[in-house]
Every structure is written in C-alpha cells, then in structure tokens.
Amino acid sequence: MSAFLALVSASFRREAHHRSQMMMRIVGTLIEILARISIWHAVYAGRGAVDGISIGQMIVYALIGGTLLSSWDATMIVRDIGTTIRTGAIGSSLLRPASYPMMLMAEQLGTRLFDWLFISVPVIVIMGLIYGLQPPASLPHCLLFIGYLAVSVVIVMLTAMLVGLFSFWVFDAHSLEWFMRGLLAVLSGGLVPIWFFPGGLAEVARALPFSWITYHPMAVYLGQHDLFWSVQHLLIGLGWVAALALAVVVVWSRACRQVVVQGG
C-alpha cells in the first residue's frame, strides 16, 4: 500500500513540475467547456426545458462532465501501455516488486488527482462564475455523487487497462486507443447525456459500464433519480468495478505468458 501511495505521490509531483503545460491545459479545458456550453445554448435557444432538463442543468452537466468526469485520460493509459510494450520497457516493469497494472493505476491516479485539483477545479470556478453553477440536488445526492466519482475514475482506468493490455496480442495500441475513444465518446454520455438518446440506444447505453463514467454520476448530482435508485445503481457500479478488475487480472496473467525477453 505504501508503494502504491508513493507512486501516486510521485506521479502527482511529476505533473506539478510542468507549469506552463498546466496553464495551457487550463486554457484548453476552458475552450472545450466553452464549446460544450455554446452547443447547449444554441440547441436550447427559445426552449424552457427538454425532457425535464433545463439549460442550467445542461451547463452543469457540460462543466462537471467535461472536467471531473472526463474519459479523456483513458486513451492516455492505452497509449502508455502500448509504448511500454513497443519499447520493451515491459521487461523491466515485470522485474519490479509490484504488479504492472497496480503501478499503472497508481501513476494514473496521481495524474488524475493533479488534474482534478489544478485543472478541473479552476475551470469549474471560472466557468461557474461566468455561467452559474447549480449545487447538487441535496446533501445525500452530493455524498452519493462523491461515491459515483470514485466509481467513475476506477471504471475509466480499468476499461483503459483492459483495452491497453490487448496490445500484447495486437501490437497496435494506437488503433485500440481510437476504438475506445469512439466507444466512450457516445456510451459514457460524456458529450450528450443518455436521456437524450433514441429509445433502444439509450437502453443499451444505460446498461453498459461506460455510463457510470459520466452519465450516472451527473444524473445523481442533478437529482434526476431518488436516493434508493441512486444507491442501487452505485452498488451496480461497484459490481462493474469488481468485474472489470477481475477481467484485468485474468488478461494480465495471460499477457505475462506472451512476454519474451530477448537477450540483455
């Protein structure tokens, strides 16, 4: 556990060294959120609420969904795994006294925590001051949202690891990254909430684990569901976490048998 925390801390500190990069990322995220809010302003023009969702709620969805609950990091994990395999660094990773997926999780968690603190929070504050930021529907909804946030980040990382580990067989992490990017763009509800999806597609998207990345946490934050439903779905989300973790363990153990280290 101390090794895990040390890796989280090292990754956090590494991110903190690149200050100009951090400033650019804040500007970039502000632009991205501005685009999302502009889209919702444009489509809501002259409408009060659509499917019971107001423009104010959609601004919150765009703001928090595009920062704290973004699925963008997932593609970075796939890319990292691909690079580790392509460069042969996986050999030295196997020699370390900690499992590679666990190290990857710790490093990504450090990066994610840094992003939340120094990119997401400033962007939420700035855009919240400009466009207004609705608070969570109630205190219990707020507490549940924190639980959903943890489930969201773990599902993103485990999904990305699972996809990335397939690089051991297909050797083309770049393509896997694009496949995942396309999948998550729609099914996480990152840009468009699933409540606006056509019937059949909405049912499928709600059932898949990707909807716990952005859609379900935001639905809880905005109070779209009662507390019983929210707790029930948080438990389902934890079930998905367990299933994905098991899948990562199985795929990793098989992937280890694929590694052949040539000479030294």
Partner: peptide
C-alpha cells in the same frame, strides 16, 4: 488503423 480512426471520429 483506418477502421479504428474512422470509428473514433464516428463516435
């Protein structure tokens, strides 16, 4: 790669 990138954009 062509299919994957097309799929990414299609998303």
């Amino acid at each position: 790669a062509w299919t994957a990138q097309g799929f990414g954009y299609a998303g």
